[in-house]
Amino acid sequence: MKVIFLKDVKGMGKKGEIKNVADGYANNFLFKQGLAIEATPANLKALE
């Protein structure tokens, strides 16, 4: 799943980066902790 990092995550990515991560990792950790959001077309447009 493609995500946009909202904060730096050690060993994974930096704020503003777009990366592919495992679905479970994104849903169970990154999204719940507020560290990333899904890289949807609307979210990608908002990032620009």
Rank of each mutant, 00 (worst) to 15 (best):
M1F: 13
M1G: 02
M1K: 09
M1P: 04
K2P: 09
K2M: 14
K2L: 13
K2E: 13
K2A: 13
K2C: 15
K2S: 14
K2T: 09
K2R: 11
V3G: 00
V3H: 00
V3K: 00
V3Q: 00
V3F: 01
V3C: 03
V3S: 00
I4S: 01
I4F: 09
I4M: 08
I4E: 00
I4N: 00
I4R: 02
F5Q: 00
F5E: 00
F5R: 00
F5S: 00
F5N: 01
F5P: 00
F5Y: 08
L6N: 01
L6K: 01
L6M: 04
K7F: 12
K7A: 12
K7Y: 12
K7V: 14
D8F: 05
D8G: 07
D8A: 09
D8N: 09
D8Q: 04
V9H: 04
V9Q: 02
V9Y: 09
V9G: 02
V9W: 06
V9A: 04
K10N: 09
K10D: 14
K10A: 14
K10H: 14
K10Q: 15
K10S: 10
G11Q: 07
G11V: 02
G11N: 03
G11E: 07
G11W: 05
G11S: 08
M12H: 12
M12D: 09
M12W: 14
M12V: 15
M12I: 14
M12T: 07
G13F: 07
G13Q: 01
G13N: 00
G13T: 01
K14P: 01
K14Y: 14
K14C: 11
K14W: 11
K15T: 10
K15C: 11
K15E: 09
K15F: 06
K15S: 06
K15A: 12
G16Y: 07
G16M: 04
G16A: 06
G16P: 01
E17C: 07
E17S: 06
E17H: 03
E17V: 06
E17M: 08
E17R: 02
I18N: 02
I18E: 04
I18C: 05
I18D: 01
K19A: 11
K19L: 05
K19N: 04
K19W: 09
N20Q: 14
N20S: 14
N20A: 10
N20D: 13
N20W: 12
N20L: 13
N20R: 14
N20I: 15
N20V: 10
N20Y: 14
V21A: 01
V21W: 04
V21F: 08
V21Q: 02
V21K: 01
V21C: 11
V21I: 13
V21G: 00
V21P: 00
A22I: 12
A22L: 11
A22P: 15
A22S: 15
A22Y: 11
A22V: 10
A22W: 08
D23T: 15
D23A: 14
D23M: 13
D23C: 15
G24E: 15
G24F: 15
G24T: 14
G24C: 14
G24P: 10
G24Y: 08
G24M: 12
G24S: 12
Y25M: 10
Y25K: 06
Y25H: 10
Y25I: 14
Y25D: 08
Y25R: 05
A26Q: 06
A26E: 07
A26V: 09
A26K: 06
A26S: 05
A26L: 09
N27V: 15
N27F: 14
N27R: 14
N27E: 15
N27S: 12
N27M: 15
N27G: 08
N28H: 13
N28K: 11
N28L: 10
N28D: 09
F29S: 05
F29W: 14
F29G: 04
F29E: 07
F29V: 15
L30H: 00
L30K: 00
L30W: 04
L30T: 02
L30M: 02
L30C: 02
L30I: 04
L30G: 00
F31I: 12
F31L: 11
F31Y: 07
F31R: 03
F31H: 09
F31E: 01
F31K: 06
F31G: 02
K32C: 13
Q33F: 14
Q33P: 03
Q33G: 12
Q33R: 14
Q33C: 14
Q33W: 15
G34W: 05
G34N: 09
G34R: 06
G34T: 03
G34S: 09
G34L: 08
G34M: 13
L35E: 03
L35V: 04
L35R: 03
L35I: 10
L35F: 05
L35K: 04
L35S: 04
L35C: 05
A36N: 00
A36W: 02
A36K: 00
A36P: 00
I37L: 12
I37R: 07
I37W: 07
E38L: 08
E38A: 14
E38S: 05
E38P: 11
E38M: 08
E38Y: 08
A39H: 05
A39R: 00
A39D: 02
A39E: 02
A39I: 04
A39C: 08
A39Y: 08
T40D: 05
T40H: 04
T40L: 06
T40A: 04
T40G: 03
T40R: 04
P41W: 06
P41T: 09
P41D: 14
P41E: 13
P41A: 11
A42G: 12
A42L: 09
A42V: 11
N43M: 07
N43A: 11
N43R: 04
N43L: 11
N43T: 09
L44H: 03
L44W: 03
L44I: 15
L44S: 03
L44V: 07
L44T: 05
L44A: 03
L44F: 04
L44P: 03
K45A: 15
K45P: 15
K45L: 15
K45Q: 14
K45E: 13
K45C: 11
A46I: 15
A46P: 04
A46Y: 13
A46F: 09
A46T: 10
A46V: 13
L47P: 05
L47N: 06
L47K: 05
E48G: 10
E48S: 10
E48V: 10
